[in-house]
């Protein structure tokens, strides 16, 4: 067992866990933040996506011992970011979700895309979001919502 100081959504957290514990389980069980989901445990589905130092990261395969002092942002904190808010609003307007289980990861992936590529093309969307899978098949509305969030952000209007 080791003690780690983590920065999560701008707050300092301290946990004492087995060093090999994936960040996902530290978030969900030790910090009781269940917004980040467990879908596969092998980085295949994207439901566990968080941001670490601004990079979309699959928390189910990253041991907490490798995080260091890099800041972590989860779905619970993404609304603090204007891009995050725009994406969430677009998701609601477009009625993207069905069961919703994959959507935390989809939103975190979409935010990473839009923060890096202001006007993503269809190819950009397919490549960046192609690793986030949705059993309900909401892909068409995800694409629409990313485009409308992009328009909203680029029109100069804040959320």
């Amino acid at each position: 067992m080791e003690t780690y100081k983590l920065t999560v959504n701008g707050q300092q957290k301290e946990v004492t866990v087995d060093p090999g514990t994936p960040l996902l389980w530290v978030l969900r069980e030790d910090l009781k933040m269940t917004g980040t989901k467990y879908g596969c445990g092998i980085a295949a589905c994207g439901a566990c996506t968080v941001h670490v130092a601004g990079i979309a990261t699959r928390s189910c395969v990253v041991p907490v011992s490798l995080v260091g002092d890099r800041p972590i942002v989860t779905i619970e904190g993404i609304a603090q970011d204007p891009v995050g808010r725009a994406v969430q609003d677009a998701w609601v307007s477009a009625d993207v979700v069905q069961c919703g289980y994959c959507q935390s990861g989809q939103i975190m992936g979409a935010v990473a895309l839009l923060k890096s590529t202001q006007k993503p093309t269809d190819t950009n969307i397919e490549e960046s979001m192609g690793g986030n899978i949705c059993r309900c098949g909401t892909y068409v509305r995800i694409r629409q919502a990313i485009k409308s969030a992009s328009q909203q952000l680029n029109s100069g209007g804040a959320a």
Partner: peptide
Amino acid sequence: PGLNCATCHQGANADS
């Protein structure tokens, strides 16, 4: 973006 190498691969082996 959203699917970088660093999305999964960190600065050291994650044997766990």
